[in-house]
């Protein structure tokens, strides 16, 4: 089966309200990507090309050089720069061998535009980040 395993996507909060058919459809759009330990996955300030789900391994998130969070299996990152076509908001570095499933901007945008449930979920995630930012705490920046 090409793309990301359906089971991996079912674990992702972003897709939790989708029916199995929709998840299968989305899974086909993802492509596996490997990062070596220590490799920079996203660089703060750079343009953003893809949204990623972590299949295995861990990555650290830092903003302006300060470590903010650790990402692990099932976490996703990279959506912010894809939504506003702005620069990456955080630097993410693979702290172990990292296997991700990536969805590029070109597939991510029509997916969200055509799927209200995913759009709503993304909105909820964004609002959580906004509230956290307002309280001066950024627990889960996702580039």
């Amino acid at each position: 089966m090409a793309g990301a395993p359906v089971e991996a996507l079912k674990r992702v909060p972003l897709f939790i309200d989708l029916d199995p058919g929709e998840i299968e459809q989305i899974a086909r759009l993802f492509k596996e990507r490997h990062f070596s330990q220590g490799e920079t996955v996203t660089r703060e300030g750079s343009g953003g090309a893809a949204f990623f789900l972590i299949e295995s391994g861990q990555a650290t998130v830092s903003v302006a050089g300060a470590e903010r969070a650790m990402l692990k299996q099932g976490d996703h990152f990279g959506e912010i720069a894809l939504i506003d076509e702005g620069p990456r908001s955080a630097t993410i570095v693979a702290s172990t061998e990292l296997v991700c499933y990536g969805l590029t901007f070109w597939d991510f945008r029509p997916l969200v535009q055509e799927n209200g449930a995913i759009g709503w979920k993304l909105l909820q995630v964004m609002v959580q980040k906004l509230r956290a930012a307002e309280q001066g705490y950024l627990p889960d920046l996702t580039a």
């Binding site: 492509k31 990507r33 996203t42 660089r43 750079s46 343009g47 953003g48 090309a49 893809a50 990456r88 990536g102 590029t104 901007f105």
Partner: peptide, 9 residues
């Protein structure tokens, strides 16, 4: 992926 990397974009 090199054609779809952050730096390429």
């Amino acid at each position: 992926w090199s054609a779809n990397s952050d730096s390429a974009i």
